[in-house]
């Protein structure tokens, strides 16, 4: 089971945040097919949000074929999003961490690191498309 949290300053609507958190957990393999999502009542009682917000998020996840609701039981994960198996992510993460150390010792602060990453990511994606 996962637990949702909301960032009220992110500018992302609460229902989008729930969708993103589920997708994120699926991508990282934290959630796998068969796992249950928290019930609407539980989410609402922890986050003090409108029940329709949760229902809307779950409906969207259902539409993208990631979860399915079983009436009276709950909502369950039906698909996975982690295209690279978890095992492949470990060395990648380690490499990234080594790179972060290098970037810091080169004098980059967090903001510059993020900007550099985003920029390289964008230009790499642009190359892929071209």
């Amino acid at each position: 089971m996962i637990e949702f949290h909301l960032d009220s300053r992110s500018g992302v609507s609460p229902y989008q945040q729930i969708v993103q958190q589920v997708r994120h957990a699926l991508r990282l393999g934290v959630l796998e097919p068969g796992d249950q999502l928290p019930t609407v009542k539980d989410v609402v009682a922890t986050l003090a949000i409108n029940p329709n917000t949760v229902l809307k998020a779950y409906r969207e996840l259902e539409h993208s074929g990631l979860v399915a609701g079983r009436p009276g039981v709950g909502t369950f994960v039906t698909a996975s999003l982690s295209d690279a198996p978890l095992a492949a992510q470990v060395p990648l993460r380690r490499e990234l961490e080594r790179w972060l150390v290098k970037a810091r010792s080169a004098g980059l602060d967090d903001e510059s690191i993020e900007a550099l990453f985003r920029d390289s990511f964008r230009s790499a994606s642009a190359r892929d498309i071209a």
Partner: peptide
């Protein structure tokens, strides 16, 4: 909110602070 999720009642609540109501 938990009561509304379970029983589906209608609620009208007032506040002079939007932040209080934004989520619920």
């Amino acid at each position: 909110a938990a009561y509304v999720a379970e029983h589906g009642i209608s609620v009208v609540l007032s506040s002079h602070l939007v932040a209080d109501l934004e989520r619920v």
